[in-house]
Amino acid sequence: MAAGREGGGKRGTWAPWALMSPAVLWLTLFFLVPVYFLLRTALSNVDFVGNTTFAWRWHNFSEAWTTYNSEFIRSFWYGALATLLCIALGYPLAYVIAVRGGRWRNMLLGLVVVPFFTSYLIRTLAWKTLLQDRGPFVSLLRDVHLIGANGRLLSTPAAVIGGLTYNFLPFMILPIYVSLEKIDLNLVAAAKDLYSNPWRAFRKVVLPLSLPGVFAGSLLTFIPASGDFVNASLLGSPQTSMIGNVVQGNFLATVNYPSAAAISFVFMAIILVLVLLYARVLGTEELSV
C-alpha cells in the first residue's frame, strides 16, 4: 500500500487520529481483543460444570484437529468446490455485462444484486423447496436417470455445495466485473490487429488483467463458504456437517468452550495460511478490491 501516494497529502499528527479514534477503538476492543480471548479460552481447562480456567493447554489444538479432521477437510473441500463453481458461473456473466453490456450495464448489475435483497435464510429455504423430493429438480433428474428412482438431492453434498455456490455468487461476480470493466478494450483490439484470434486475445490480454478480480472474488467466496453452517444445516444432513456446525454446537449446545475456541482458532489459522499461499501462487498481494 502506497500510503503517501494515496493520502490526500496533508500532514497531520493528531487530527487523523482524532477522527479515527472511535473506529480504531471499536475494532481493537471488539475484534482484536476478542481474538486474544479466543486464544486464551482455547488454551484453558474445562471442568465438568463448564467452568474454564487458563492452563496453557496446547493439547486442545491437536485434539481439535484429530477429533474433527473430517469436518475440517469437508469444509475446505466444499468451500473450494463452491469457489470454483462460482468462477465458472460468475466469470462469463461478469464478462458479458462488462464487455457487451453497453448501456444495459447498470441494469444488468442491478439484476445480479436484486436477489440478495431477500434474507439469506429465506433464500436458502427456497432452495430447500426447489430441491424437495417431490420438487422439480429431483423429478427431472429421475426422469433422465441421472439419479435413481429413489435418488434425492436434499441432504446430499451436492445440495450443500449448490447452496454455498448460490449464496456467495455475487461476491465473485462483482469483483470480477470491476476488474474487467477497467480493462482498456483497445488492448484487445491491438491483440487482434496483431493477428491474435479472439480466444488467444482473451487468454493473453483479458484474463491476466482480470486476475485481481478473480483473486478478490475467490477470497470473498471461499472464506465465508468454508465457514458457513447455514447451508449445511438446512440443505444437508449430519453426514455433510461442516466445521461451522461443530463450532456452533460446541459453543451453544454442548457448551465446551475450550474445545470450541480451539477449533475456531485452528480454522482461522488454516484460512490465513491458505489465503497467503493463494496470494503467492497468483502473485498478487492486494487484499482489498
Binding site: F30, F31, P34, V35, F37, L38, R40, T41, I223, P224, S226, G227, D228, F229, I243, G244, V247, Q248, F251, Y257, A260, A261, S264, F265, F267, M268, I271
Partner: peptide
Amino acid sequence: TPEIVLGSSLLT
C-alpha cells in the same frame, strides 16, 4: 476473518 471466528471470539 470467517464469521464463525468473529462470532465465537466475541462470545469468549
